[in-house]
């Protein structure tokens, strides 16, 4: 299971490493198909299903990057919490979705492609110019180290995240209370 050892010799398909590579390809396929479905689906719930598939694939990437903690968090938070919340919102707000929205602006297609191309260019440029760190674990990479760093050197970030969540909860309460008749 040492990744460095398998870089030079391409493993045969009928070995454990070959199977590992196959699973890696499956993860790539999951991420791409999920993203494609999410972008092109004409029903909201299908798009959400695409997002779930895409996130699962990304979690697989985290696992292959020697970071099982991030992989599990990806599934637990993004699939388990965020997607379930979104689907609750969809089901409670709009159970019968019209298949297509009305006629769209003639400019929206080209503009959309332009924005997508710009984002792609920026991401690609970023990826090419970044000095990538070597492929090994930083500070052990264990859950214990992540926990210690989160509560010591990165405690500011950690607290800020909880502030964001607090604001989200207050916002949700404000919106929910606004709908009720004030007696």
């Amino acid at each position: 299971m040492n990744p460095a050892a398998t870089v030079n010799a391409a493993p045969g398909l009928l070995t454990a490493d070959g199977l590992l590579g196959l699973i890696f390809l499956v993860m790539i396929a999951l991420t791409l198909t999920g993203g494609f479905i999410a972008a092109t689906a004409d029903r909201l719930v299908r798009a959400l299903a695409g997002v779930v598939v895409c996130f699962t694939g990304v979690a697989g990437f985290y696992y292959f990057l020697n970071s099982p903690f991030m992989a599990m968090m990806q599934i637990l938070i993004y699939v388990g919490a965020i997607c379930v919340t979104i689907s609750f919102a969809i089901m409670l707000a709009a159970p019968e979705q019209k298949k297509k929205s009305g006629p769209v602006n003639i400019l929206s297609g080209p503009l959309g492609f332009l924005v997508a191309a710009l984002i792609f260019g920026a991401m690609a440029g970023l990826a090419l110019r970044t000095e990538w760190l070597p492929f090994d674990k930083i500070a052990g990479g264990s859950v214990r180290d992540i926990g210690i760093h989160l509560l010591t050197s990165y405690s500011m970030v950690f607290e800020l995240i909880s502030l964001v969540l607090l604001i989200a909860i207050i916002g949700a309460i404000v919106i929910a209370r606004g709908g009720r008749s004030q007696s």
Binding site: F69, M72, C83, V84, S87, M91, S142, V143
Partner: peptide, 23 residues
């Protein structure tokens, strides 16, 4: 190393399946 987390993460995926089935 994160066995407990793995079980909870995939349990959450299970509740997603209930929603999808019902919808």
């Amino acid at each position: 190393d994160v066995g407990v987390l793995l079980i909870f993460a995939f349990a959450a995926l299970g509740s997603m399946s209930l929603l999808v089935a019902g919808w």
